[in-house]
């Protein structure tokens, strides 16, 4: 490993390229599928709202309603919408808070939190409050763990289990704050936000019957 001085640099580059490809694949999938104008504007609104949520809490590392908002959107509107809201929220909010090497990682991580929330919802769209809170708290840690990867592969050498654990231990307090924040937001707002979003989801899926064909059938 030490014979190759490019070892860590290559991993840093590879991880970023891989991440960008995954994000691009999700965007491509969103492009290919039909999405009504209402769904597009709703995704944009939820992404902006999730991004705005970062601003008042920017001074408290870890505590922010963004993950919760992304997850609840994914839970109600499905995996694609969940990923899109998460990815766009990260990108948009960083236009105001400052872009950085963390942007693609945040896009991926928040996107995946929305994606997994949709998987939790499954076909039965009832709000599973306890499971949602547990998943949200888990994402508090998972968010930090994924974000740590760029730090570890990009700036630590050699890449050993010891340095890996040390990097992850350093972020543990922030991850815990994030997890507690997510659980609290889910507990306080989960059911209410679910009901509101569910109502709007039904509004999105309203279809208009063809009046002429109805007349003919009479």
């Amino acid at each position: 490993m030490q014979d190759n001085p490019l070892f860590s640099a290559n991993w840093a580059l590879t991880s970023v390229v891989f991440l960008c490809l995954v994000i691009a694949a999700f965007f491509w999938s969103f492009e290919r599928r039909h999405a009504s104008t209402k769904v597009i504007t709703l995704i944009a609104t939820m992404a902006a709202l999730a991004g705005v949520g970062r601003v008042p809490f920017a001074m408290i590392p870890g505590v922010q309603p963004t993950t919760f908002l992304v997850m609840i959107t994914g839970y109600v509107f499905g995996s694609r919408a969940g990923f899109m809201v998460g990815a766009l929220a990260a990108l948009v909010s960083n236009f105001f808070l400052g872009q950085g090497p963390w942007t693609p990682w945040q896009m991926f991580t928040w996107g995946m939190s929305g994606f997994t929330a949709a998987l939790l919802a499954g076909k039965d769209k009832k709000f599973k409050r306890r499971s949602f809170i547990i998943l949200a708290a888990f994402w508090g840690y998972l968010f930090g763990w994924i974000m740590n990867i760029w730090h570890w592969v990009g700036f630590i050498y050699p890449l050993t289990w010891e340095t890996f654990l040390a990097t992850y231990l350093a972020s543990f307090p922030f991850d815990t704050l994030h997890a507690v924040g997510n659980a609290t937001f889910s507990l306080l707002f989960g059911k209410t936000f679910y009901n509101i979003l569910e109502r709007f989801r039904k509004k999105c899926s309203v279809t208009l019957s063809d009046l002429h064909s109805m007349d003919r059938s009479k």
Binding site: F27, F30, E31, I40, T41, I43, A44, T45, A47, A48, G51, M84, L88, A89, L91, V92
Partner: peptide
């Protein structure tokens, strides 16, 4: 995607 991003 870009429309959603612009709107956001």
């Amino acid at each position: 995607t870009m429309l959603a991003l612009s709107l956001s």
